[in-house]
Design a protein around this nucleic acid. Structure first.
Lengths: 340, 340
DNA sequence: GTGAAAGCGCTAACAG
DNA sequence: CTGTTAGCGCTTTCAC
């Protein structure tokens, strides 16, 4: 077995409590003893046994993270940000992949809960009711999901699609389409609403092209609807859809952005490497992960101050990233406007 | 606090030891008592406190996983496989991202070691010496890295590039290039060696085009070397390089695979969505992650039987995935052969 | 087949 | 400022 606190105490010729105290509140220990103890700790290579500590403090020093699918390019960045921030604040991350199985999620939370001080749920698929149950098991912070009464990190979806629409307007588009994702999700609704409002604001026509699965094939499947609607540009619910759509359009021999411009949402790495590179609205994943950890820990620390309800910070800003898939200036589309 | 084993014992009218025994060796408990206890466990929603258990058993039920960069598309699949398999065998995964910092890795292992029963190190960047130190802290299993005396999951790199070269030969290529990755890495050496041997075997010319960073820009940077070498096809150390290369070639107006064919290695999701879709050698990540967990747990369980040295299973098979980036049949290249 | 007792490594009062 | 005492929740001999 490893070297214990008692070993250190013996070696330093003090009691266990003194060593323990040296670790928790060094200022309450005589400088000389303290130094000696630290020296012994270093010499012996003592590592506190977190399990034993947690047994008595009730805190584990662990943070749980649940993602629906780690292979989905959206989540690794998020997990990474969460992991980094957690580590910085002295926590270790327990990662669990629910494998896109909503039914499994609550079970995972149940088994995770006793081992962690809080759980970050990324894009949880479970129901609001289940979420409420989950919340009784451990402090919870939601990312990319909203549920009544549960703290969440939110982003400015509507603001993002507004910027996208505005960009298209600047390029002289007048009739654009929106390919949706999961209709029941708040982010879908907000993105669509934001686009609608912006279209009105800028005097454009926004065609709802329906919803598809938020996947590459989902995006491909949307191509026909896009063509039928005779729009000159399309906003997709997310990047994966946008890329699938672009691929299908290109395979039809349609030029992007020459004939149709495409804008995604999220800014996954894939978008930068697709051809043409995808214009997109950046989902601030680093910030989101970071905020989630900070809010969650504040909430746990619970000194009553600060945005302990997790809603204090407001939606995180989104940002339009302009790349190749929208870089055509459509002068001809402008005619009606210029003449009118 | 949560419901404890003692609560269950009280509710069932038995002692704590009996409940404990029911959980560990049910057959040594009277059927009636057992049933009653299980009923109470379910009713009360009892969850064993892993920390307390680990305190006495010395086992944590946790597995550590260290990756250099979760945002690198290669790793999420691996982590996912590890996570799934670990979960299946009743372990929870502690994930740590070393943020591509080799110097930080050992420190992470040190802090992880006391909390886990074993550690899976994915693509560890640390030195062999450090690895040896790490191994003294906790049982270790390497993926995508080899070090003397340390158990590792290996894959058949040479076999993979051999299949790739063979494929190119079938398409009538005769002069092909190899764009390398990290020269000191075993996988680079094996992939190159495999390609060399296969080129000889199939009577082809294999030009070593040097090494680049295993990144998108690294691949782009290799384009000029490819052009200068006047090869009709190129093997890249990995997919990311291959995709960067393809993009640059396409931006030069060169047709892939019409003028130059490209093959990657790994089979990351990106390859399937790039344009043209990337022919590649599949790195069996699911299998690798799974094997790593199984080997590691066997090693920990250490009953002496089985491949407890972690090298028993031999290299995992790789597989050529043919996609759009090599689908041109280069009849003209054959002339010399046909005529000769 | 079951219970009593001891203790894993640590922290948190409480004395001294 | 430091040591003593008493457990945290659980498993594990060892009696019964």
């Amino acid at each position: 077995m490893a070297v214990t606190l008692t070993d250190v105490a013996k070696a330093a010729g003090v009691s266990a409590s003194t060593v323990s105290r040296t670790l928790s509140r060094p200022e309450r220990v005589d400088a000389a003893t303290r130094d000696k103890i630290f020296r012994e700790i270093a010499r012996l290579g003592y590592q506190p046994n977190l399990a034993a500590r947690s047994l008595i403090t009730g805190r584990t020093g662990n943070l749980g993270v649940v993602v629906p699918d780690l292979a989905n390019p959206f989540f690794p960045d998020l997990v990474r940000a969460v992991q980094l921030q957690a580590h910085q604040r002295g926590f270790t991350v327990l990662l669990v992949d629910s494998d896109e199985n909503p039914a499994a999620e609550l079970g995972l939370v149940i088994s995770l809960a006793p081992q962690v001080d809080g759980i970050v749920l990324c894009g949880a698929r479970m129901s609001d009711d289940e979420l409420t149950k989950a919340q009784q098991l451990a402090p919870i912070m939601l990312i990319n999901r909203i549920a009544p009464g549960i703290p969440a990190v939110t982003i400015d979806n509507a603001g993002g699609t507004r910027q996208a629409v505005r960009h298209l307007r600047a390029l002289r588009h007048r009739r654009i389409g929106f390919v949706g994702g999961p209709v029941t999700s708040r982010s879908h609704q907000q993105r669509l609403a934001g686009a609608r409002a912006a279209a009105e604001e800028f005097g454009m026509e926004l065609i709802d092209l329906g919803s598809v699965a938020p996947s590459f094939v989902g995006g491909s499947a949307a191509a026909d609807a896009v063509l039928l609607a005779e729009v000159s540009a399309v906003l997709a619910y997310n990047d994966v859809i946008a890329i699938g759509l672009m691929h299908r359009l290109v395979s039809y021999g349609i030029e992007v952005p020459g004939e149709i411009s495409v804008i995604g949402f999220d800014d996954i790495a894939l978008g930068e490497m697709s051809h043409p590179a995808l214009t997109t609205v950046r989902y601030p994943r680093e910030l989101a992960g970071q905020s989630a950890v900070n809010d969650l820990l504040d909430l746990i620390g619970g000194d009553g101050s600060g945005p302990a309800d997790g809603t204090g910070r407001g939606p995180l800003p989104t940002e339009l990233i302009i790349r190749g898939s929208t870089t055509a200036f459509h002068t001809h589309l402008e005619e009606t406007h210029v003449k009118g």
